[in-house]
Write a protein that binds this DNA or RNA. Structure first.
Lengths: 218, 218
DNA sequence: AATCGTTCTTGAACACGTTCAAATTTGGGG
DNA sequence: CCCCAAATTTGAACGTGTTCAAGAACGATT
């Protein structure tokens, strides 16, 4: 059966993710993962290129669950502020069990050469799915977002989400409530701030910002 | 002479920094540093707690040189936009030789437990010195920055600087010219944007932003 | 100059992530 | 049922960052 191999792979991933959660990144050694999964250390490398590759597995799973929960939250909210809150809190909910592991995750993910890097080729599907969440959040918002911003906003919000994640990693408050407060405070502010896009003086500066943001990408 | 010990320490730091620049972080092994400095590998650990600690040494030196060059740039410019440009370009100039090493540096620095982490206790002097640069940039600016923003702005700009650094690490364009363009574009935009703080509609939102930024820190 | 505590230095050892040649298992075709 | 090629698994090995007990060099005190 071809399933046997897949079974070993899944066992390894499952064990690795559980250990990441329970004892952290560094204490979760490849040998320990393999032992717990009942295979040799070398064998783990038949299924995963590296320890980082197991982190990528986590990233993909977390992202998938985020998409699912975010969709649920978006069904319930119409205003941009509430939609944003829903999406961001959903993300925090999914990541919560991994908070102690967060710093190592980010340290791994930030390397341009890592498969976990959210900008890397290996992460393109996960990143696209994540971007899609923010596209939906923006597109479905009532009242609608100013037309001028509609195309750039999802990407910018996704970047904000990366920022919130970073903040969350450093947030040692109980249950990361500071990050929760940040989300609760920032979401309505962003929504309100977008309304200013129609103020003439602001509009000009905003155009410049958008132009810069576009020009600097290439 | 007490200088003998200090000499060994400096030799190690000098060799390490040069190797970081020339062959990158991973290829610069502790054994290689020690060998090149003419001591045993174990001895390097008498002077530096860890490899990361050598990165901290680099951080401190880079920061010191940044402060120096930024001060020079600030002497020549009065407007906030020009002052910001000067400070940011000075930072990029100092970091330039280490660009290939940047990703590893950031990956190290981003760990809350690392001595290199810019928010860590070990980095407090370097961080304060860096903040001071932005305080000077803001305080000396003519026309003056809106009073409301004067106290928070340096910290926010310093955060922007962290963001620019991150952008720079990922910037693979020749000579990191995209980052240069980002700085040239963003500096005047920030200066212009601050002027909007006096527009009534904007002022209210801005108050909320500042309040949130303050409340979320504790 | 001899002594002694401190500072400095060494080299072997450890656990880690990772590699790889060799061994084993698997599954399909004769 | 047997055989072979491919897929899977092993265990030993490598180089890494780091630790540490032991020793060597130093410098102040007598």
């Amino acid at each position: 059966m071809a399933a046997k191999s897949e079974q070993t792979r899944q066992k390894l991933a499952e064990v690795a993710l559980r250990m990441f959660r329970e004892i952290g990144f560094e204490k979760t050694t490849m040998r320990a993962i393999a032992a717990e999964a009942g295979v040799s250390a070398g064998n783990a490398y038949y299924y995963f290129e590296s320890k980082d590759d197991l982190v990528h597995e986590l990233y993909v799973q977390v992202q998938a669950e985020h998409a699912e929960r975010a969709a649920g939250a978006l069904d319930k909210a119409g205003g941009l502020a509430e939609r944003l809150k829903g999406v961001l809190h959903a993300g925090l909910d999914v990541m919560a069990p991994y908070h102690r592991f967060g710093a190592d995750f980010v340290a791994t993910a930030i390397r341009p050469t890592s498969p976990v890097n959210p900008f890397s080729a290996a992460s393109t599907p996960a990143r696209e799915a994540s971007l899609e969440i923010f596209r939906k959040a923006v597109d479905g918002a009532r009242p609608a977002v100013p037309r001028k911003l509609r195309s750039d906003l999802p990407e910018l919000l996704w970047l904000c989400y990366m920022g919130v994640t970073l903040f969350w990693v450093y947030d040692t408050s109980e249950g990361q409530q500071r990050t929760r407060r940040l989300v609760d405070g920032a979401a309505p502010l962003i929504a309100k701030g977008l309304g200013l896009a129609r103020v003439p003086g602001v509009s000009k500066v905003l155009d410049d910002v958008l132009n810069l943001s576009r020009s600097v990408r290439t």
